[in-house]
Amino acid sequence: MDIKLQMKGRTLIAALSGELDHHSAKTVKDMLETAIVNKSAQNMVFDLTNLTFMDSSGIGLMIGRYKLITSIGGKVCIVSKSKTLNRLISMSGVTKLMDIYQSTDDAVKSVGGM
């Protein structure tokens, strides 16, 4: 699991690559919590383009960050092109909370970044 963090305006973009499961979710969660606070992020984009695997632990992780970000009035969305990932994401109801985009630019625009 590898995480690349980048700020665009007040939007934190987290690009995840590798496999996101319960084991790796702990590390990702800690890194994101720290980054959201330290960088005063208001919105967040999960870029899943380079994820090769995700199970429902990833859903738990995204919902956890969604709760944090919406509690400070921000928005969260997802970048993903994988059919398998999108099926998992929509069956768990996450698409009712955050939209899925094809590119980070569209995602950042949608949360009102820059």
């Binding site: 969660k29 199970d55 429902s56 632990s57 859903i59 738990g60 956890g64 998992l88 069956m91 768990s92």
Partner: peptide, 11 residues
């Protein structure tokens, strides 16, 4: 509280 989604069996 462990950030589980409760979707394991459904998956």
């Amino acid at each position: 509280e462990m950030e589980r989604s409760g979707m394991g069996f459904t998956v």
